[in-house]
C-alpha cells in the first residue's frame, strides 16, 4: 500500500540569541491511510515542532532547513504560500494542544466552521455549507443546536470535539492531534479519543497522535515513534513497544509507567533532557543511558531496521552487513 504521508529527512532549527537549536534533526517516517501513529517524548524532544513543520507553521526564529513532507503525491515543502493555505485542512489538518481555547469567544461555532469551508471554496452555497457543518458536528456526537452556540456555552470536552469537527470538515488525508486531551479528565478524554477513532475510520485518514501519555498510546495507536532530542529513537508497533522496547530510552519510558502491580514504586528517568543548543556528542542519550559504550560518545547511531521490522537508533543493535 502506498503511504499517504511521507516525511523525509526533515530538519528544523530555531535561531536564538544563544545559538542555533536543532529541534528536528533528520526525521524520516511514512504512514499509510487508516494508520494511527503515536509520537512520544519528553517536553523539548521535538514532538510539537514536528507537527508544526508538517503543517509548515514554523514561525521565525524557527526555520525548516531541509527535507520533504509528502501528502498523497504533493510535496508540501514545495508549495507556494497560497497553495499551502489551501492544503491546510483539505490535505492535512492539525488539532493543536489546548485546541478548545482556540475558539473565538464572540463568534458562533457555526460561523467559525463555515469560515473554514469558505476559505477553501468561496462560492459555496450557504445552505450546503451549513449542512456540511452540521454533518461534521453530528459525526463528533454533538447536537445540531451547537451550530448556533458560542464557545462559552460548551464544556471543555465539547469544545475539543468542535475542534475535531473543524479538523475533519474537508476530509483531510492526514490528521495531526497534538495532545488533544491533556486538559481533560479521564471520562471526557475517553469520549474525545473514541470520537477521533470513529471519524478517522469514516474518512480513512492517517492520524498522528502526539503526547506523553503512554497509557493513551497503548489504547489508541497502531505504531509508536519515540523521539529524543529531535531524532527518532525507535519506531515499533504498539505491541513490540510495550512488550519488548528496544532502545534504552524507550525501555526507561516503559518501565517508568505506573501500573496496579508495583504500588508506590516511582521510577523516573535519571538526568535531564539535553539542551538542544549543546547536544551531547555521539548518541544524545548516552549521558543518561545505562548501557552506554565508548562508541556512543563519538558516533551517532543511525536509524536501522531490525529483523522484526522495527526501526531503532542504537549501537546495541549492530548494523546489518
Amino acid at each position: 500500500m502506498n503511504p499517504v504521508l511521507q516525511v523525509i529527512d526533515l530538519q528544523v532549527s530555531y535561531y536564538t540569541d544563544t545559538g542555533r537549536a536543532i529541534a528536528l534533526n533528520g526525521v524520516t517516517l511514512a504512514l499509510s491511510a487508516g494508520e494511527k501513529l503515536g509520537l512520544v517524548g519528553e517536553s523539548g524532544s521535538g514532538k510539537s515542532t514536528m507537527a508544526l513543520a508538517m503543517m509548515r507553521m514554523i514561525k521565525p526564529p524557527g526555520r525548516i532547513e531541509g527535507g520533504q513532507v509528502i501528502v498523497g503525491d504533493t510535496d508540501l515543502t514545495k508549495l507556494s504560500n497560497d497553495d499551502m493555505l489551501k492544503a491546510r485542512l483539505s490535505k492535512i489538518a492539525y488539532i493543536p494542544q489546548g485546541a478548545m481555547n482556540s475558539l473565538n469567544p464572540v463568534m458562533r461555532i457555526g460561523d467559525q466552521m463555515a469560515d473554514a469551508i469558505r476559505a477553501h471554496d468561496p462560492k459555496a452555497d450557504k445552505f450546503a455549507v451549513e449542512d456540511r457543518c452540521v454533518g461534521a458536528l453530528e459525526s463528533v456526537d454533538l447536537k445540531p443546536s451547537v451550530y448556533k452556540m458560542y464557545a462559552h456555552e460548551l464544556s471543555g470536552g465539547m469544545k475539543q470535539r468542535v475542534c475535531i469537527a473543524i479538523g475533519i470538515l474537508l476530509k483531510p488525508q492526514v490528521i495531526i492531534a497534538d495532545e488533544p486531551t491533556s486538559a481533560l479528565d479521564v471520562v471526557t478524554q475517553r469520549q474525545v479519543m473514541e470520537t477521533i477513532d470513529r471519524v478517522q475510520k469514516q474518512i480513512g485518514a492517517a492520524v498522528i497522535l502526539i503526547g506523553h501519555d503512554m497509557g493513551l498510546m497503548a489504547q489508541f495507536v497502531d505504531k509508536v515513534a519515540v523521539m529524543y532530542a529531535g531524532r527518532l529513537a525507535e519506531m515499533s508497533t504498539v505491541r513490540q513497544m510495550f512488550t519488548t522496547p528496544a532502545h534504552p530510552y524507550a525501555q526507561a519510558l516503559i518501565s517508568s509507567l505506573p501500573s496496579l502491580d508495583n504500588k508506590g514504586v516511582f521510577q523516573g528517568i535519571p538526568g535531564l533532557a539535553p539542551s538542544l543548543l549543546r547536544l551531547p556528542s555521539g548518541c544524545a542519550f548516552h549521558p543518561r543511558c545505562p548501557h552506554a559504550m565508548d562508541v556512543c560518545t563519538t558516533k551517532r547511531p543511525e536509524l536501522e531496521t531490525l529483523d522484526d521490522g522495527r526501526r531503532v537508533a542504537c549501537h546495541l543493535y549492530p548494523e546489518k552487513a
Binding site: V186, R190, A218, Q219, I254
Partner: peptide, 26 residues
C-alpha cells in the same frame, strides 16, 4: 467504575472498557 474503566492503562491486555459512556455533559 466508570472512572476506573476510563483510565488508559499502559497495558495491551487491558483495553479501554466496553461499557458505554452514557449521557452528554450538557
Amino acid at each position: 467504575r466508570l472512572l476506573i474503566d476510563s483510565i488508559p492503562w499502559p497495558d495491551l491486555s487491558r483495553r479501554w472498557g466496553e461499557t458505554e459512556i452514557k449521557a452528554r455533559e450538557s
